[in-house]
Design a protein around this nucleic acid. Sequence first.
DNA 1: TTGTAAGCGTTATCAT
DNA 2: ATGATAACGCTTACAA
Lengths: 342, 342
Amino acid sequence: MKNKKPTTIYDIAKKLNINASSVSRALANNINVSEKTKRLVLKTAKELNYKPNSIASNLRKGNNQTIGIVVPHINQNYFSNVIAGIEEIAYQKGYNIIICQSNESYQKEVKSINALINQQVNCIVISTSADFDKDDHLQTVLDHGINLIQFDRVAPNLETHKVLNDTEQVSMEAVSHLIEQGYKRIALLEGPQNLSIFRERKAGYIAALKKHNLPIVKELIKENAWTKELGEKATGALLDLPNPPDAIFASTSDFAALGALNAAKRRTLNVPQQLGICGYSNESFTEITNPTLTTIDQFSTKMGKAIADLYFEEIKDKLTTGPKKTINIRPELIKRASSQKV
Amino acid sequence: MKNKKPTTIYDIAKKLNINASSVSRALANNINVSEKTKRLVLKTAKELNYKPNSIASNLRKGNNQTIGIVVPHINQNYFSNVIAGIEEIAYQKGYNIIICQSNESYQKEVKSINALINQQVNCIVISTSADFDKDDHLQTVLDHGINLIQFDRVAPNLETHKVLNDTEQVSMEAVSHLIEQGYKRIALLEGPQNLSIFRERKAGYIAALKKHNLPIVKELIKENAWTKELGEKATGALLDLPNPPDAIFASTSDFAALGALNAAKRRTLNVPQQLGICGYSNESFTEITNPTLTTIDQFSTKMGKAIADLYFEEIKDKLTTGPKKTINIRPELIKRASSQKV
DNA sequence: TTGTAAGCGTTATCAT
DNA sequence: ATGATAACGCTTACAA
C-alpha cells in the first residue's frame, strides 16, 4: 500500500535551500518569517503534497489536540447526540475526538480510559458503565494531569467537572403532573441503583408523592426495568396486583414506557384513561405511539455542547487547579397524550 | 492542572540501574529479556504509575493504531450503528477510532479527511456527504498510502475497497412486493440523485415496474423527499393528483414514509387498504406506528463489523496493492402492516 | 541478555 | 529573519 516516504519539512527545506526550522516557522505562520519565504514554503508544500505529521508535532508539543469520550453505547440516541454536540464544538476548535464504548462493562471502561491516557488526550469525557465499580481509573486520569469531565452517569465520590441534568427536580415534576391529572397509585420503573441518575429519579418520585401526601408503596416500585421487554414484564406484574397502579413512571427510559404501553394494550386497558404513562428521554418514537407518550427531554445535543464549552472556555487554559464546576442542564417535561385524562 | 512530568521508560531505567532499551523490551514482552528484569520492570512501572506514551511510540513506528471514520451525522441511527460495529472489532484489535461528522458538507468532509491524514491513521472509513462534489480528497488519502474503505454512499469513479448494501435488488423486491399486493400506481419518493445509493433505489423501482409491465409515470416520482416533512408534503401533492397513486415507496428513509403515513391520515385514507407504504432503513419507530411500517433493514451494525473485518483480515498486512474488494451486505425487506392488504 | 546510539518529524532555544 | 541544534519518548539495529 505504502508507496514512498511522505514529504517532510526537510524535503521542503532542501528544495528551497533554507533551513527546516524556517519551514516550520513559515507553516506555523510565525511573525519572524519574511513574507517571501512564507509564500515560497506554502507553494512548495502544496507542490510536494505535504501534510504535517501531527504525531510528531504533538510529541514535541507534549499534547495532542484531542478529546477522548467514553460512553456505554455509541448507538443510543442520547449518547450519540451528546457526542455529536461535543464534536461540533471540538471541530470548530481544531480538535479531534476519539470515541470508546464501554458496552456497560467496567472492565472495558478501564481499558478504554488507559488507551486514552496513552494517547495523551487533553481531556476525557465520560459517562460511566452500568456495572461501575471503583473510581480508581478516573483518579488515574487526574493523576496524569488530564482534564476529566463526567456527565450524566457520574462517580459520586470523585470531585471533577460535571455536566448533569437536573434529574431529581424534573422527575418530581413528572410525578406531580401525574398526580395533578388525578392518578393516585403511581408505580415506578427504576434503574440500577448503583447509578446516581437512577437514584435521583427515584428520589424525585418519592418527593412528589410526599409533597402530595400520597403513601410510598413498596410493591409499586419495580427494580431494573430498563428495556422494553423488562418494562412490559414489570408493568404486567404490577397490573396483576390485587390493587394495581393507575399510572406508571418509567424513570429508566422511553423503551420501558413503550413496554408499559404494550402491557396495557395487551390487557385492553385504555391509556391514559385507565393507566397513565410517563417515560424518560424523549426518544423520537414517543411522538408516534398511540397514544403519544409523555416523556422528559434531556437536551442531549445541548449537553454535548455544554461539555465542550466547559472544556474550552473554563478548563483548557487555566493554570491553577481551581474548583470543579458543575453545570446543570434543565430537562423538560413533555406532556403528551399518555398522561392527560382530560 | 499538570502537576509533574509523567514517568518515562528512562525513569524506570534509572531506578533499576539498567538501560532504557531494556525497559522498552521488557514492556514489549520481547523474548530477549530475562524473566527477572521483566518482573522488575513491570513492578517498577506500576509503582511509578507509568503509562506508555503512544504518541512517541507511534511516531517511532510510523503509524498509529487508529481508524478514522467520516460520516454525515454521528447521531443518525444508521451511522451510529455502523460506528458501533467498527468500534467493537477495532477495540478487540487494540485500535482506536477517531470520528468526524461532515454534517453533509463537502467542505467539512475535506477538512476532516485532512485532519485524519495528519493524524497518520492507518485506515479511513467514509460515507460521503450529500453535497459530495469531487473526489480529490479521497485520492489524496490513497496518495498518502492510507487505506480507504468507502461504505454506503460511495464516490462512483474511485476504485477503493467498498462495503455496500445490495440496494437496487432489495428496492426491486420492495416494489415487487407492493405490486404483488395488488397496488397498481406506485409512487417513488427519491433522494439526491448525485448519490449512487439513491440512484440505485430508483433503478430498483423502475426495474420492478418494468418486470411487471407497469408504466413508469413521471408525475409519480418525487425528488428530494427525504425528511418527514418533505415526505409528507410530497405525498400530499401526489394524493392531490387527478389520478393519485395507491402506494408509496419512500426510498429515502423511514422518516419520509412516516410523513407519507401522516399525509394519508390527514386525508383519512386507510393504510394499507387505500394506500400502501414502504419505507427504508428499519428505524426502531417503524414497529410502533399504526399501522406498522413495511421497510428495509440494512443490518447497519453488521456492516460496521464487515468494514472492520475487511481492514483487519484483508488489507492490513497485505504488502501488495492488490485488487480492491467490494463486500455486499444483503439488506432485507421487512413486510409489515402498511403494505399488506390481506 | 544487555547497552549504545541513531532516528521518527516536529518545534523551541539559542546564536547569528 | 534565518540557521544550527537539541529535545519530545520511544524503538531498533548493532555492538558488546
